[in-house]
Each structure stands twice: as structure tokens, then as C-alpha cells.
Design a binder for these strands. Structure first.
Length: 496
RNA sequence: GGGCCCGUAGCUCAGCCCGGUAGAGCAGGCGGCUCUUAACCGCAAGAUCGGGGGUUCGAAUCCCCUCGGGCCCGCCA
């Protein structure tokens, strides 16, 4: 919209101020500001003072000017930093020439440092009675409206920094996200898991049915893909002798984006040798319980966070995939139905899936249509049909099923776990059966992964958790773009 | 991919139905004001109305195309 070469008059005025500062020998972008305390600490030093009095001594605070209220020979500036904000009180009588200079040179949005006495105004507002005010970084762009903030949803995504500098609430959202990631790491570390960093660039992206991004290595002269899951490399680490491993990182799927899908998203996967999916179910239940307690403690002002502990109170509900589906459909024997029959049922339920999809796709669709919408509270869906899940071990007692659970909550999938398939012959057979179906629905055949299993992988369980969705649920955010700092947007085409 | 909605000054919005040549608040400029906190008062300034095309004597407004965004549905896990 605004050509950076062609500054608006507002920017021109601010650039002119910078020039004037330099002409009088000032520095609009100095190097540091020593001895600073946070506005929260400065505010603390004001407590207990009677209105209209000030403390002995002085403090130094620094941050962004949010608003300026000029009153002739005295003025009030609101200064904001990461810890909060505090009012600066400037008086011409004390500052002399520097009073007019400061007001002429400082605008809302500028970063400044102030030195002054902690005080409380006659109206009772904690303030710093300023002895000296120093410009630390001149802003050329004016900040958004001080009262309404930045509303334009497009600008909020494309220029997230503007939203962040304007809105403490948005900073809180991303602080909360960070803490959920940190607590998740702490949880797995505390349970003896080692964090691994596996390759992002791989010859063939596997472990899920998804369209990968592709790129090219000039040096190797071969095509590479960006990973779509963390599963296969982490299982290789189980083969290699690590018994508890996890990875928390970004994966990439070259697919549509909407409120719950982002082309890059943050995935946690954890693998645990000599344990099965019921062990993992307990671990996941505990993890969500701890995350819920954390966000409720830290963000009681967010209704979703405050309510999280009661929502995620153990034990979570448990339903059997097939029983739940048949109960909702009012039928029996879905596993005995032919692929064609299931396809017809799925289409009848309103799912538009290609007719040649494998049976597992139809079963997933039917479950989505019939059961998922009713799963408002956290619910473990157990023991999926084998056809839906090529990487899980067949169920020890239920024929035609695998040992798997998905955790749903309000239609969001919050975890997906298996007792992992570790029989290399069976794994190869299932990969090939998948490859017989539609290419888009298939898991990529990873010959080296089968080769790894041939060396022997211990019995194990694994879980995947979409961290963005967990953050959405825990903090009460409805769009995945609002929990990712820099979501993908279309490049803005130059209108010519 | 389908449907609905949005795009006007740096920011937040009005104007669009019913065509007559764009208006306010904040921010910025000038002036005033020594306790304000969405400070206040006065003056002046600020907009190729997302872009392109069409209809018309005349288009922010009506029509078509296009770009970007949001929501819903579909697809995708």
C-alpha cells in the first residue's frame, strides 16, 4: 500500500525531526541505556507514597511511548515495556529548555529512556517525575490508533510486529504458547525422554499421508522433500538403542490452509520402548493435566485457560472406535462391510471422497461425520480399524483392529498414538497394500525404514501431538493463525 | 474447489441501497493550557476510495474482471 521509497507526510515529519536532532548534535539511535529497571519495578517503588509526593533518589526506565498528554508547562507520557507501563511526568519548571525540546522531538511509538524520581501524582497515578528524557530509537512509522489498536486482520498477520507492539494481549498469547512448549519439553524430559533433532530435508517424506513440499540440493543434485512427520526417524532411534526419545519441531504439508490447518505446523512426537499404547494414554492424560494446570495458574484472565483444569480432569472419557461408530450409525458389522459399501455410506453421510479411496479412508470419514462432533470433552477414541492405520500394531485381542488411540476435544484432535508396528515383514506388506490404492492417500514407501526394522525395534508406543491445536484449546484461540507468530500469507502482488 | 462478507487519510470508522465529485475521531503540524490518563480548546493540513475495465454528462457508490484478506462448507490429517 505504502511505497517505502515514498514516505507519507507523517513519516517525512518524523524524518525531519531526526535531522533536527542530528543537527543539534543529538543521536536519535544511541547504543544503550544503562541502569534500567522494568516499569513493574519502578511502579513498585511508587507504592506507599502519598498522592503528590515523591521518593528520594531516582530510577531509570525505558520503553515505548504509547501516548502523550500535553498540558502547557507539564505533560504526561505513558511508557510501556515488556513488564507493563508507567506514567512519566514532565514539568517545564524542572526541565527548563529540555522540556520543550523533549516534547518537540518525542512522538508516540518512540523508544525512550527516562531518569527520575518514583512518585505518585495528586490524582494517585504512580509516575516517574522525570529529570532527564533520552530518545533511544526514533520511530518513523506512527503506531496504530492508541485506543482501537490494529484491527485490520490482514495487517495483523502480515505485520505481526505491529500487532504485537500495539497489543499486550497478543503478546500474552504468544508468551502462553511459549510456556506450553516449554512445559511440554519439561514434562518429557522429566519422564526420561531425550530430545532429538532429526532431518527436516529428506529424500522421501513419510510417516503420514500428506503432500510434501519439494526442494532441491544443488550439491547433491537431487530432489529433497520437507518432512511431513517425525515418526520414521524417531523409530530409527529406537532401533539404534535410545529407549525414550521425542522431537518437538516444525513439519510441512503442502495442502490447503484453514482455521485448523497450517502448511507448516509444530508437532511433538514421542517414542517409548518397552511400553504400549495404554501406557502412553496415561502419559498423555498426565501431560494435558499438567499443561492445563499451568495455563490456569499463569493466565487466569483467559476463560479457556481458567477452565482448562476442569476440562482436562483425569480420567478422560474412553470410547471404542467401532462401537461408537456403530452406535451413532445405528448399525452393526461395519468392519465386515465391503469397500464399496463403506464408500456409499460415507457419501450418504455427506463426505465427498473419491470413490476409489481405500476402505480406511471411508471409515475415517464416517467417524468424522458421526462421532467426532459429539466429543466435546477430552475423549480417547480407541482401537481403530486396521485399514485406517498402516504404522500401528494389530490389536492383541480385537481382530481387524490396531492398538491406537486418538484424543479428541471439541472436534480438535489433541493426540494420536499407537502401539508401534515393529514387524518388518508386516510393515513392508502394509506399505505395499497402501501403494496399491490411490497415490494421494498412501503413505510413502520408505525402504530404508523397513530395513531399519529388520535390525529389530523393541516393542514400543509412540504419540503425536499437534502443538498448535493444543495451544488453541488451552488458551481458547479459534484459528491456528492466531497461535503462530508468522502464518503463511499470499505474497502481495504489486498492482500495476 | 463452492458460498457469503470485507478492502475509503498512518490507525479506527462513516459515506455505497437511493450516482452529483469524500467526512469524523485518533496520530501528525501551528497556537493555548502546571495533575492528565481515549486529557481538553482553537486553527490549518492530510485520500490516485485495493487494482483494471465498463455503463453514465457524471462512479467510492451500479456492472464485469482481478488482487489481498476474513468466515462457512468441501478437500486434506
Amino acid at each position: 500500500m505504502t511505497d517505502p521509497e515514498e514516505s507519507s507526510r507523517l513519516e517525512a515529519e518524523r524524518l525531519a525531526k531526526i535531522e533536527r536532532i542530528r543537527v543539534r548534535g543529538g543521536e536519535p539511535y544511541p547504543w544503550t541505556f544503562a541502569g534500567r529497571v522494568s516499569t513493574a519495578e519502578a511502579r513498585a517503588q511508587c507504592t506507599g507514597l502519598a498522592p503528590g509526593t515523591e521518593a528520594a533518589g531516582s530510577v531509570r526506565v525505558a520503553g515505548r511511548i504509547r501516548s502523550i498528554r500535553e498540558h502547557g508547562q507539564s505533560s504526561f507520557l505513558d511508557l510501556e515495556d515488556a513488564a507493563g507501563s508507567i506514567q512519566l511526568f514532565l514539568r517545564g519548571e524542572e526541565l527548563g529548555d529540555r522540556y520543550d525540546l523533549a516534547l518537540a522531538e518525542v512522538d508516540p511509538g518512540d523508544i525512550v529512556g527516562a531518569d527520575g524520581a518514583p512518585s505518585v501524582t495528586r490524582r494517585g497515578e504512580p509516575s516517574i517525575r522525570v529529570n532527564s528524557l533520552e530518545l533511544l530509537a526514533k520511530a518513523i512509522h506512527p503506531p496504530p490508533d492508541k485506543y482501537h489498536g490494529l484491527k485490520d486482520p490482514e495487517a495483523r498477520l502480515r505485520q505481526r510486529y505491529v500487532e504485537l507492539l500495539t497489543s499486550p494481549e497478543s503478546r500474552v498469547r504468544f508468551q502462553g504458547r511459549y510456556e506450553i512448549l516449554r512445559e511440554t519439553r519439561r514434562f518429557f524430559d522429566a519422564h526420561g525422554f531425550m530430545e532429538a533433532e532429526t532431518a527436516v530435508l529428506v529424500p522421501v517424506a513419510g510417516g503420514a499421508a500428506a503432500e510434501p513440499f519439494t526442494t532441491h540440493s544443488r550439491y547433491l543434485d537431487n530432489d529433497l522433500q520437507l518432512r511431513i512427520s517425525l515418526e520414521l526417524p524417531l523409530k530409527r532411534l529406537l532401533v539404534g538403542g535410545f529407549e525414550r526419545v521425542y522431537e518437538l519441531g516444525q513439519v510441512f504439508r503442502n495442502e490447503d490452509l484453514d482455521t485448523i490447518h497450517s502448511p507448516e505446523f509444530t508437532l511433538l512426537e514421542a517414542y517409548w520402548a518397552y511400553a504400549d499404547y495404554l501406557d502412553m494414554r496415561g502419559l498423555v492424560e498426565q501431560l494435558y493435566g499438567e499443561l492445563a494446570a499451568h495455563v490456569a495458574r499463569r493466565y487466569p484472565e483467559l476463560p479457556a485457560a481458567a477452565g482448562a483444569p476442569s476440562l482436562f480432569r483425569a480420567p478422560f472419557a474412553t470410547v471404542d472406535f467401532v462401537e461408537a461408530l456403530e452406535a451413532k450409525m445405528g448399525t452393526t458389522g461395519v468392519l465386515e462391510r465391503s469397500r464399496e459399501e463403506l464408500g456409499a455410506l460415507a457419501r450418504a453421510a455427506g463426505a465427498s471422497v473419491p470413490e476409489d479411496s481405500p476402505a480406511g479412508v471411508f471409515l475415517d470419514k464416517l467417524f468424522d461425520k458421526y462421532v467426532t462432533p459429539g466429543l466435546v470433552r477430552p475423549t480417547f477414541v480407541m482401537d481403530h480399524p486396521l485399514a485406517t492405520t498402516p504404522l500401528a500394531k494389530r490389536h492383541r485381542s480385537k481382530p481387524g483392529r490396531v492398538e491406537r488411540f486418538e484424543l479428541f476435544c471439541g472436534e480438535l484432535e489433541l493426540a494420536n498414538a499407537y502401539t508401534e508396528l515393529n514387524d518388518p515383514v508386516e510393515q513392508e506388506r502394509r506399505f505395499k497394500a497402501q501403494a496399491g490404492g490411490r497415490a494421494e492417500a498412501a503413505y510413502a514407501f520408505d525402504a530404508d525404514f523397513v530395513e531399519a526394522l529388520r535390525y529389530g525395534m523393541p516393542p514400543a508406543t509412540g504419540v503425536g501431538i499437534g502443538i498448535d491445536r493444543a495451544v488453541m484449546r488451552l488458551l481458547g484461540v479459534s484459528s491456528i493463525k492466531e497461535v503462530r507468530l508468522f502464518p503463511q500469507t499470499r505474497p502481495k502482488a504489486d498492482a500495476a
